[in-house]
Amino acid sequence: MNIKELVEALGLEVVVAGPMEEEISGVYVGDLLSNVMARAEEKNLWITIQGHQNVVAVASLTGVAGVIIVEDFAIEEEAIKRARERNINILRTPLTAYKLICQLIELGI
C-alpha cells in the first residue's frame, strides 16, 4: 500500500503532501528521536506525537515513507515549511497511536 491509498482508506489529514506514491514497508512508533533514528527503517510509517521541526530532520535522515502525528497534536509552522522543502509526507489523525495501529493491522500493513 502507498501513502495515497492509506490516506484514502483511513481518512487521514494531509498536512504536507510529499511523495504520495511512496510504498509503505512496516511501521515504527516512537517519540524519542534517538530511538527513531536507530530503529525506524526506510519506507516505514513513523507514528509519533512530536510536531516540531526536528521531526522533519529525523524523517528525512531515516528515509521513512511518511510521518503520522496522532491525537491531533499541534504541528509547528516551521516544521510544515521544512517538510515542504524536504518533500516529506506529514499526516495527522485524531486517533490514538493504539487505535491507528489497530486500523493499520486491519489494512495488512
Binding site: 534517538s34 530511538n35 536507530a38
Partner: peptide, 16 residues
C-alpha cells in the same frame, strides 16, 4: 519533551 535527551545518544554513537 521534544524527544531529545533520552540517554541514548552516546550508545547510538558507540553502536554504529
Amino acid at each position: 519533551d521534544m524527544g531529545f535527551g533520552a540517554g541514548m545518544g552516546l550508545n547510538n554513537i558507540k553502536h554504529y
